[in-house]
């Protein structure tokens, strides 16, 4: 069950990767990577349950926060041209 869900998410992630590669604008790529971040969080949580080690959820929390900050940081850099 978990494995099936993981495979479905990986297929989705692969489709997103195609969009990230094709572009055509930088924002399409950022959007794709943002969606990828959400998928990764769910994937890590599912992996934890599949391997019987729910401790993985801590990693998922950290990844959720970091991926949001990454997206916002990239966008702030594009908007303002600097990060401070």
């Amino acid at each position: 069950m978990y494995i099936a869900a993981i495979i479905a998410l990986m297929v989705g992630a692969f489709l997103i990767l195609i969009r990230a590669l094709r572009g055509p604008t930088a924002y399409d790529r950022i959007l794709a990577m943002n969606a990828m971040g959400t998928k990764t969080v769910i994937l890590v949580a599912l992996l934890g349950f599949a391997s019987g080690r729910p401790d993985f959820l801590d990693l998922a929390i950290v990844y959720a926060l970091v991926s949001f900050i990454t997206t916002v940081a990239i966008l702030k850099y594009i908007e303002a041209g600097r990060l401070d």
Partner: peptide
């Protein structure tokens, strides 16, 4: 932990979407 992840993602997902849109619009 599951609830915390769900809440974090629920609040950050629309915010990130809006941030991307605003940057694209300004561009």
């Amino acid at each position: 932990r599951l609830a915390i992840i769900a809440v974090i993602l629920f609040f950050t997902a629309p915010t990130a979407t809006h941030a991307i849109t605003k940057a694209a619009r300004l561009d």
